[in-house]
Amino acid sequence: MSAAARPIAGSSVRAVAWRRRSARRALTFYAFLSPWLVGFALLTALPLAVALLMSFTDYDGFNLDRVGFVGLENYTRALADPDAQHALQRTLILMVTVVPIGVGVQLALALLLDQRLRFSGLLRTIFYLPHVIPVVGGAWVWKLFTDPNGGLLNAIIGIFSPDTYIRWLVEYPTVVLSVFVIWAAAGGGMVIFLAGLQGIPAEYREAAMIDGASPWQVTRFVTLPLLSPVIFFQVVVGVIATLQILQQPILLTPGITGISPGTVPPRDNYVFVGHAYNAIFVNHLFGYGAALLWILFALVLLLTLVLFRTSGRWVFYGVQQ
């Protein structure tokens, strides 16, 4: 702000010099930004425009030269599509379970590991490990673990109740999906919360202890409020990520090793982006699929806004400056 905010007093020569200087500054700014500016225009904005145009057409993916504009038809159709509604419902259910539990787990891990522990590096790596496993590999891990025959999970339950034979991916598909997603994201969130905890000045907690607060009270009334911006951020990121889930439900479908159209996950794991994927690649409704995805984008935006709007009630920005 320094240049612009100064009163433009004095001689015009000085004013010209100022202007020249701020022009040069602006130029430097744009020079630094240029990779992203050019990249955004060509690799994001342009395809995005095509996707937006596509959502108003009946494009089938085969012939670009014969595309018909259908106005808002794809959008009105989406609102009346029972599968889209079912998928949206499942996705929202996933979101309201995975996000709070997931963030809770991340926070709990961070609070536990923030104590003085031996082998904390090793423990950190153990909790972080799932986050490094690519989603295709992670799905294999969980399919194997929950396999009714060769899976360890049934074997463990079998110790307490013999002859357990639970088909996890059939009977509890959403549970497995949720656990998989929470497990995979836990390490990443943990690191962020750990960072947040290290940024809280030790005096705050020490002062509370001296005042006779129990460790739980310190956590509840000192640590958590100070950590609330981080919690808020993790919730926002979690909401965005969960609403866009596609690969995990497909890969957890029994008998599937790769991602291909025509895979039908258990009905409970039929998510919104999966429905769009099917619309595009099974039914060749490129326009309709694009419309579904834009609706999702609008929803993500809306939810994020709601989160921001309500955040004032519980997010505490007190310590900073």
Partner: peptide
């Protein structure tokens, strides 16, 4: 915030 799939085909 954009769903990746939206860009998939145009890209």
């Amino acid at each position: 915030m954009l769903p990746t799939l939206v860009l998939f085909v145009p890209q």
